[in-house]
Nucleic acid binder design. Structure first.
Lengths: 231, 231
DNA sequence: GTCTATAGCATGATAGAC
DNA sequence: GTCTATCATGCTATAGAC
């Protein structure tokens, strides 16, 4: 699916056309995990899942996912221990469901803007798209950033290759936009990833300085696209 | 204490003059926590502490600090549960000792280069200094980055104000170097922090791309100092 | 579909021997 | 200064009532 947006679009403009947003995520998750979720009425399932994820983010961001007990999660969601296990297979499975959302989302972004005419426009849009979707799904992105290192070796490989595939996409766009030195293109792409991740990882900093998401996106795009012809 | 180094110094040059390095950290820690550490012979204490930190970094980076059990830590260090408590007051205290090292180090960096003649040189040196010291003490920096969010509210405040005081120092240097827009200076300083943190947080990425610490430092300094006169 | 009750186990910390 | 043994607590996950 491709998105139609003006050049240098704003967060407000993005919000109106994005196919992925908090309110339709739950239906997606219920569908992708229908084998596991025993609750049949979709509306009930979505509401309880919404509470489960909301509570998980609140508790995990306060004490970390591993120390967060399922008893705390039950108290916070209003579910019982037994009830909770109608929605998740295990505590690890809960983390894997969240991971899956981010992997799915990250893979979708470059496709949204693949039809734009110039490499510079695709670059600018892809960066903005990533920043804006991470703003909409901030707790999900934050969770995956912080918890992915504690996954099993095989899951960690999947998480890293998902991140690298987005970074490689940026790299290719830099080359298309005129960066002939591929080592430099890789490094610049890594820098872009680092800047964007900072937006959802160190949010307290930008809140404190009252930096808006549009100001931030403009700043990142400016750095990324600067001097694209002198290496 | 101030350091004498050439402009755009390399990691090899930095290593020869840095007052903080892995081999003298332990003496510093023993001194700063002498009230708590019951072991009197300093050589024994330092060797056991070295093993405790080494094992903590290995285990915490594999499964996280909270899920790491003190039994695992004992198995890895060769100490018994009782023996371990001669060195740490509690599991939380162990994390606080590591935090303290990074706070102490981060506060020292700007002073090392405060006597350099121009703001541009101070900026370049301060950035390199931070990158190179985080290379030397990578496990320590990584641990604090990952675990500081799970600290108590008061400890979290201390950690954040330590990070902000370094960032504000960068901000001031940007203004001295000609950035008249202070909002822009703050944003640029935050970007610098994000890029540097990426060096020790996502090391696997740079190893995979075979980027050396000197190449990385040059790239960050280039971005940081670019167009310092056009905002 | 959701609850209560509990099995089975691992944890952080300490007491006291040597 | 380091050990072994032990305590009290809290955990994940499940069984079975309703």
């Amino acid at each position: 699916m491709q998105l139609t947006l003006p050049q240098r679009f704003t967060f407000a403009q993005f919000k109106q056309v994005t196919p992925i947003e908090p309110s339709n995520l739950l239906a997606l998750i219920v569908e992708r995990h229908s084998k596991r979720i025993t609750v049949k009425r979709s509306a009930v399932a979505q509401e309880n899942l919404r509470r489960i994820f909301e509570s998980t983010f609140r508790l995990a961001n306060k004490v970390g996912f591993a120390p967060m007990s399922l008893r705390d999660l039950c108290r916070d969601t209003g579910l019982s221990m037994g009830g909770l296990y109608g929605y998740i297979a295990s505590k690890d499975d809960l983390a894997a469901m969240i991971e899956d959302v981010i992997r799915f989302t990250s893979a979708a972004i470059p496709i949204w803007f693949s039809a734009q005419p110039t490499a510079l426009e695709r670059l600018d849009s892809t960066l903005r798209g990533h920043i804006f979707i991470s703003e909409l799904l901030r707790p999900w992105f934050y969770f995956v950033f912080m918890e992915s290192r504690t996954l099993s070796a095989s899951q960690k490989t999947v998480a890293r290759s998902s991140e690298m595939s987005f970074q490689d996409e940026l790299s290719r766009l830099f080359v298309e936009a005129g960066l002939t030195d591929t080592t430099n293109a890789h490094l610049r792409a890594a820098h872009c990833m680092a800047l964007i991740q900072d937006w959802y990882v160190k949010r307290w900093k930008y809140q404190q300085q009252q930096v808006s998401v549009d100001t931030f996106a403009n700043s990142v795009c400016r750095i990324a696209l600067l001097h694209l012809n002198d290496g």
